[in-house]
Design a protein around this nucleic acid. Structure first.
Lengths: 229, 229
DNA sequence: CGCGCCGTTGACGTAGATCAAGATGGGTGG
DNA sequence: CCACCCATCTTGATCTACGTCAACGGCGCG
């Protein structure tokens, strides 16, 4: 395992210095025999998970963006979250195995798969590194839930979610204006509980206001400050 | 500090054997000097928190029910969660101090206030007891969020929330049919993002169906199974 | 080059918010 | 114990945000 350099260039969406799991990943020899770090490449549309994965596995997204989702009763997919580079995937499932959900790459991604080799409760080394993650994860979870607090219009939800994206970029040292987001209107709608047409109409309006730019099938955030509060 | 006996009688809403924090509370001498447990009584409508509380304090609700809330921009209160006996309050704030929110008693309550005397990261004893709480808390958080997953009608939300209440009672060994819940329509609406009138109309309908019973200003769940799935 | 997914736009319907006006219960003071 | 008051509940009428349906255009992948 080589030492990883920070590459926060726009387009590659890679983050290491400010990655939430850097403690595990950058000096993996520290956890020798306690956890295992494995780099992998995931193609667009594919799942991070493989059938033989241990229940003590979580992921760090190094490059690209992803979404996690569950299957609804009617068979359709319910998008539950979007993930940016440097963020954790399936981490919550370490504490709550029933919460494990599928994670799909929105574009070609690289991930590091971190597997705790033993029962984490028994091992202070792993939990030492994990405490930082727990704190960070709790704060992010709270921010991600903001669009759902109380009664909100579609515009308030969408705007709150875009603001959350901006914050998460800034937290990782990425420039939100330089990121071309790939989630489709339908996926965003699935996440926020809105119809894709509603998302579309609001996006058109935001573009007229110069707050976002739609380039091809992607979108860029031009005025991050418009969505913060 | 005396040993606490289990009292799971209906009406008093007390739970100890299945309390999530029993590890801290029932044998407090184990954590001598590391954390402090203090029993308190909170009157209906009052806050659990006192101004001089440490950031390393969380609460266990022993008797009664409560709600946690934050203040919205327009000054009104946003209800974010309801708490049953045996559940944790402000626990998340241990990992995410900015998440600390006010908790108000819905009826006369008794709580135990658990304060970690040192930085929890430094002390393995506290964190040992806390790991179990973390797991449990994660699972509960997930279940509580179910009413908000995707696009749902008002009836689906309310029904999912009632189902969540039932599950939490059962998890604690309480009989949901024996509990008279005190939250007002407005508080429930604030939590679920619905108008109080909508909650009221649905309650009237559930009562016609014999699923709930409205006794005075409280309500009882008559057919718990109607709200599970 | 063509097919299919995705985005866009308009027309329309409806769930549920809002407004308004009693009814009811619970708490308080005499 | 009664009378009063206030918060909450209830019900109906109306309005509107947004979901649904339908049709079409364009990007992008194979």
């Amino acid at each position: 395992m080589t030492t990883i350099k920070t590459v926060a260039a726009a387009g590659s969406y890679r983050a290491c210095t400010r990655c939430r799991a850097a403690g595990f990943c950058v000096h993996p020899q520290a956890g020798q025999g306690v956890y295992r770090v494995q780099a992998r490449r995931v193609r667009a549309g594919e799942s991070m998970h493989t059938p033989e994965q241990s229940p003590h596995t979580f992921f760090v997204l190094c490059e690209g963006t992803a979404r996690s989702c569950t299957r609804r009763h009617d068979g359709s997919l319910q998008t539950n979250d979007f993930h940016l580079p440097g963020e954790l995937i399936s981490f919550e499932a370490m504490a709550d195995p029933a919460a494990r959900q599928d994670a799909l790459a929105l574009e070609p991604c690289t991930v590091r798969e971190i597997t705790c080799q033993c029962d984490p409760e028994a091992n202070a080394v792993v939990w030492g590194a994990m405490l930082g993650l727990l704190r960070d994860d709790a704060a992010h979870r709270r921010a991600r839930l903001r669009p759902f607090a109380g009664r909100q219009t579609a515009a308030q939800r969408l705007s709150a979610w875009l603001g959350n994206l901006v914050e998460r970029c800034q937290h990782r040292g990425l420039d939100p204006r330089a990121m071309a987001f790939r989630m489709t209107r339908a996926e965003i709608g699935s996440f926020l509980g809105l119809a894709k047409e509603t998302v579309c109409r609001l996006f058109v309006q935001y573009q007229r206001d110069g707050w976002i730019e739609q380039r091809g099938r992607r979108f860029l955030i031009r005025r991050p400050e418009a969505f913060l509060r």
